[in-house]
Design a protein around this nucleic acid. Structure first.
Lengths: 206, 206
DNA sequence: ACCTGAACACCGTTCAAGT
DNA sequence: ACCTGAACACCGTTCAAGT
């Protein structure tokens, strides 16, 4: 056996990540294995371990590409609502966010279904991408709470992001759909309207 | 080989569910397998399939016992706050709920980490337990929104439950803890205060 | 009737051996 | 230098064979 040189190192890496992504889009995390990826790209399973440390590392890179794509989307929305006041920016952001996650639910769920073994640390480059995402939420939320501290905005951004994640994750997890007969959109709309209404009301008191 | 009769059918079922629960409490879903359960109880893996249809069925029963325990807890809280007005009941319920989930986080996460294959339907007895849980939330939320329709209460109960799930699931999932440096309690308090404040504010307008 | 344990078709990961 | 494929230690599940 031995070398092939039909693909450069970069091409091979891309080939692996693209086909891993395709498998998740089609069959979810459950359908993904080192062997299914290898079969799809016509290499042996061992080859994956020349490019990635282990399967968790590979999956983290699939997630990274998706986060980059989402962050680019959100940056566009942020640019369009720049300078707007009130709740318009955060509402526009939530809409774009939900559209993105609804488009490929299985791929999006990868973010939450995939758990690192406790022995593995989360890489810094991964944390950075999540922080960029949260930064977009903070920026969009700022005009909705003009008289609040930066800390308050940070907290609200995290509460809203987690809550929206909870809603969409229960909606896509078939087992708990008993809880979510109403659509994700309706629930997120209610959350945003009521939470943002609460921010305004509490502000009036202060 | 052959029969043993050291345990009755019911004893064996209980033995299996208790040790499966213990494994999840200690090592999470990742540590659970038909073989680890079998080793722990001193039976062969095949025996599990005399008692449960498959591993997913077994896991569903572990979740069921946990939901029963939680529902009993929440029923107690409901009894104590019966007749109270305003936001006291829902706040008491949220507190009890969080205390329960914080006590055995890995076991609680089982509810959300475990996904049935698409080919399997969720059993009715499982849906029922989730509906009981949601019923407790609705009952506790009712006094906080006295002038709203039953449908509004249903929606708000689902939004709050999903949101709290999102917060606690991101907190326990190590990969995303970048988002949740603040404690679960702080985030849930903020969610409740702001959302309930929003309910009151919107009500004033109507 | 109940339980075993071998068997089947899978995993992730490693690494000596080949080109 | 790169890739293979066999090997190892695991899976879930089935079922003939035993008591």
């Amino acid at each position: 056996m031995g070398r092939r040189a039909t693909h450069t190192a970069d091409e091979l890496k891309d080939l692996i990540l693209v086909s891993a992504r395709d498998i998740v889009v089609q069959h979810g995390l459950a359908g993904l294995s080192a062997r299914t990826i290898a079969r799809r790209i016509g290499y042996s399973p061992g080859t994956l371990y020349n490019v990635f440390e282990h399967l968790d590392d590979l999956i983290l890179h699939v997630e990274a590409r998706m986060l980059d794509e989402l962050n680019a989307n959100l940056a566009d929305v942020a640019a369009q609502t720049k300078g707007a006041v009130g709740t318009a920016p955060i509402r526009a952001l939530a809409k774009a966010y939900l559209a993105f996650t609804a488009e490929r639910p299985r791929l999006w769920n990868l973010l939450f279904e995939h758990h690192l073994p406790v022995s593995l640390a989360v890489p810094d480059w991964y944390r950075d991408k999540l922080n960029v995402l949260l930064g977009h939420v903070e920026t969009a939320l700022q005009p909705a709470m003009p008289h609040r501290s930066r800390e308050d905005v940070r907290l609200s951004a995290r509460v809203l992001w987690s809550s929206i994640h909870g809603i969409s994750s229960l909606a896509t997890g078939e087992k708990l759909s008993v809880v979510t007969q109403v659509s994700t959109t309706t629930m997120v709309d209610d959350l945003l309207s009521t939470y943002l209404g609460g921010l305004q009301a509490n502000q009036r008191i202060a």
